[in-house]
Amino acid sequence: MIPVFDGHNDFIQRVVAAGQNGTKVWLEGDGTGHIDLPRAKQGGFVGGFFAIWVPSPAGPNDDDAIKMMQNPPFNMPLPAEIPHDQALPHAFEQASALLSLERTGTLNIVKSAADIRDSIAADQIAAIMHMEGIEAIRDMDALHLWYAAGLRSLGPVWSRPTRYGEGVPFAFPSSPDTGGPLTDLGKALVRECNQLGVMIDLSHLNEAGFSDVAKLSDAPLVASHSCAHAISASSRNLTDRQLQVIAESRGLVGLNFASSFLREDGKRLPLEEFDTMMRHLDHLLGFLGEDGVALGSDFDGALMPRDLSEVSALPVLLEAMAEHGYGDTLVRKIASENWINLLERTWGR
């Protein structure tokens, strides 16, 4: 079975929601969601980015928002910024949940590419502690504290503003060119992350913030879970200009599995078949080359395609790539090798 290393999941939310049964949800599954250990093993999932994310009071999974997103055009206003003092307890709770999974002996919180390879060899899930929207990080001292706790990847924003910059709204059709640039603190964050070796995730960042990171960062540019705007004109997807900038940095894009960001009509309905996903992959490969494309599922955070409903279905996607004409070497690169090599270059080890 070809191993898969994935660029983004929101599984920790389910662990927290399950309370005392959180580790049981991981070890045995509960019949819901997209990820648990048994299905991960079945699908060849060897690890990925496990996101710490603070929810807004209202979000894209509310009934009214779903109805709106099923009938484009739509443009949902950005949620309000969440104050640090409200965000921090949520982030601590999720970080603690990830640590509880590590204590089961089935998962390892990795801090280097060597850790990833060692975890895979030991048949443990290699988990990167990632933060999506960093309201819980107040300043550079707090960044160093989170780094000491294991954080190795962060996205400055989700779809709302932070003290570092602005995210894009849920909007279709829409350009990602909405809102202003990084703040001064956001620019300092880029420099500090480069110094520490923390990966900066461009997914959900607006056009102006993207450009600021590109100017300031000396690391490969990365969007962990994004699709091609040329195929699906969502504000969350990457334009050809952005793809070219990422390519020039020898960076990487992980293909998002979320149906509404894949579908050409932008509807929040399950994607049918794999043809559209292959078109996105072809487009990304055309700009980024065979070393710059990977996977970023958004499992447990988005509506999946009909034939890719959860993690155990990953081999079906890889089979579709092979049937599309991708050779074994390219499939293996997209499935895991490109992520591990990118992280080695970003983290320096």
Rank of each mutant, 00 (worst) to 15 (best):
P3K: 02
V4S: 03
F5I: 06
F5D: 03
H8N: 07
H8Y: 02
D10N: 12
D10P: 08
Q13P: 03
Q13V: 00
V15S: 07
G19M: 08
K24I: 11
W26D: 00
L27D: 01
G33K: 04
G33Q: 01
H34F: 04
D36P: 05
L37V: 00
A40H: 03
A40K: 10
V46I: 14
G47F: 03
G48W: 04
F49W: 06
F50N: 06
F50K: 04
W53Q: 00
W53E: 00
A58H: 14
M69T: 09
P73F: 05
N75R: 14
P77S: 06
L78K: 10
P79Y: 05
A80E: 10
I82G: 05
H84W: 13
L88S: 00
P89N: 10
H90Q: 14
E93I: 00
A95S: 11
L99G: 13
R103N: 15
R103T: 14
G105F: 11
K111Q: 15
K111E: 14
A113Q: 00
A113M: 11
A114P: 09
I116H: 02
D118Q: 13
S119R: 02
I120P: 12
D123Y: 08
Q124N: 08
I125M: 14
A126G: 06
A127V: 02
I128V: 15
I128M: 14
M129C: 09
M131P: 06
I134Y: 02
I134W: 04
A136M: 14
R138V: 13
D139T: 10
L143F: 09
G150A: 12
G150S: 06
S153W: 05
W158L: 05
T162F: 07
R163L: 14
G165E: 02
P169H: 13
P169K: 03
F172D: 04
P176D: 12
G179M: 10
P181K: 06
A188D: 14
V190A: 10
V190P: 07
R191L: 15
C193N: 04
N194T: 01
Q195T: 13
G197L: 05
L202Q: 07
G209I: 11
S211L: 15
D212I: 12
V213A: 07
K215V: 15
D218P: 01
D218R: 15
A219S: 10
A219V: 01
A219E: 10
P220Q: 03
P220H: 10
L221P: 07
A223L: 02
A223G: 08
S224N: 08
S226K: 02
H229R: 11
S235K: 03
R236A: 15
N237W: 13
Q244S: 15
A247K: 06
S249I: 08
R250S: 15
G251P: 06
G254H: 09
L255F: 00
N256C: 10
S260E: 14
R263E: 11
G266R: 05
L271A: 07
T276L: 10
R279S: 13
R279K: 13
L285C: 11
L285H: 07
L288P: 03
E290S: 14
D291P: 10
V293A: 07
A294R: 08
L295A: 04
G296S: 11
D298K: 08
L303A: 13
M304T: 01
L308I: 03
V316K: 12
L317V: 03
E319R: 04
A320D: 07
E323M: 15
D328F: 06
I334T: 00
E337V: 06
N338E: 07
N338I: 05
W339M: 02
I340F: 11
L343Q: 01
E344W: 08
G348D: 01
G348R: 01
